[in-house]
Nucleic acid binder design. Structure first.
Length: 342
DNA sequence: CAATAGGATGGAT
DNA sequence: ATCCATCCTATTG
């Protein structure tokens, strides 16, 4: 015999490759209401437990990090926050928002009584701009969380996560922010468990980045909460919505195909333009700018930590015969073409 | 050397 | 049977 079955790498591919995701019933209809149509009940209990103060403490600097791959966001967020489209000088907002550069000192807004922008606005003019900034940030956070959700195929509300979802989120967060590996420290934990943990608990499990992870989780909880609020209050999202509806595929609940995944990345140049982009969108020609990065993202999505470009490209090549993807007429390195452009 | 092409095989669905 | 993931050999720029 040859030596075929090399397929028992010591490396652990996650035990349950797909883990029963509760997402099955959370598709996201291309219609309009993205996920509010679903049940967002956990938000309530989260509030009951006092996990979410007036408005979730926003960690501006972390949020800044959330946007590492996206610089153009400030420009567009304005539309993303319908609730309080208060005309205001954007420059001011920008200044504020980018206030904290490098570090990740959690800016706690506990006492600030920051609200999504409706009632609690008893403050002076200053509060106004702060609120404005907040809305910008919130809108952006929502979009980023949504993007991550789609990429990881998890729900936005951490309280609904399975153990597998938690691991995915950890991997993703660690990857995005180059945090030291901490996934192991949180094994066997469901989203509910995670939500119930204090910052101290986090630090105990991961002295290195427990606090950061806790902060990020808080952001997610906040995003879920905001989501709920927006849907109930306004019944219509203006900004983030279009980004959502674009979101194609994955509605089916079926495992995503590589070509679909690539399309999704291409749909979000804000986030992934640095690793994959259209060369000619009309013809469906795209270029993988950072093969390693794209492969890692694919691996994340499929729970295949050992994914690399070699394997990813092999899968792409399988599409040649099927007439889904091909090499463009003038073959170039890392450039491919969808046979049926949109 | 990294990308490309494609065969072989095993696993999951 | 389909779609990968993994491994591998050979070729190419």
């Amino acid at each position: 015999m040859s030596q075929p079955g090399r397929d028992h790498p010591g490396s652990p591919a996650y035990p349950p490759p797909r883990l029963g995701m509760p997402v099955s019933e959370s598709p996201l209809p291309a219609g309009g209401e993205a996920w509010e149509a679903e049940d967002t009940k956990p938000c309530m209990e989260a509030m009951d437990r006092g996990l979410l103060p007036g408005l979730p403490g926003l960690y501006l600097s972390c949020i800044d990090m959330l946007l590492t791959e996206d610089s153009a966001w400030l420009v567009k967020v304005s539309e993303a926050v319908p609730a309080l489209a208060v005309p205001l000088s954007r420059g001011e907002a920008r200044g504020e928002a980018r206030g904290e550069p490098e570090q990740c000192p959690v800016i706690d807004s506990q006492g600030l009584g920051l609200s999504p922008g409706l009632e609690a606005l008893q403050g002076p003019e200053e509060e106004r701009s702060l609120e404005q900034v907040q809305s910008l940030v919130v809108g952006e956070v929502l979009k980023d969380v949504e993007t991550a959700c789609k990429l990881l195929n998890i729900t936005p509300d951490p309280a609904e996560w399975s153990c597998g979802n938690v691991q995915k989120w950890l991997l993703w967060t660690e990857h995005l922010y180059r945090l030291p590996q901490a996934g192991r420290a949180f094994q066997e934990l469901t989203g509910k468990d995670l939500c119930a943990m204090s910052e101290e608990d986090f630090r105990q499990r991961s002295p290195q980045c427990g606090d950061t992870l806790h902060a990020h989780l808080d952001i997610w909880k906040s995003a879920a909460w905001m989501k709920e609020r927006c849907s109930v209050g306004e019944a219509k999202l203006t900004g983030g919505e279009d980004l959502w509806s674009e979101a194609d595929s994955s509605c089916t609940g079926q495992p995503i195909h590589l070509w679909q995944f690539l399309r999704e990345l291409l749909l979000k140049p804000h986030n992934y333009g640095r690793c994959i982009r259209w060369v000619n969108k009309e013809k469906g020609i795209f270029k993988i700018e950072d093969s390693g990065h794209v492969a890692r993202l694919w691996g994340l999505r499929k729970n295949r930590p050992a994914m690399n470009y070699d394997k990813l490209s092999r899968s792409i090549r399988q599409y040649y015969k099927k007439g889904i993807i091909r090499k463009p007429d003038v073959s170039q390195r890392l450039v491919y073409q969808f046979v049926h452009p949109v």
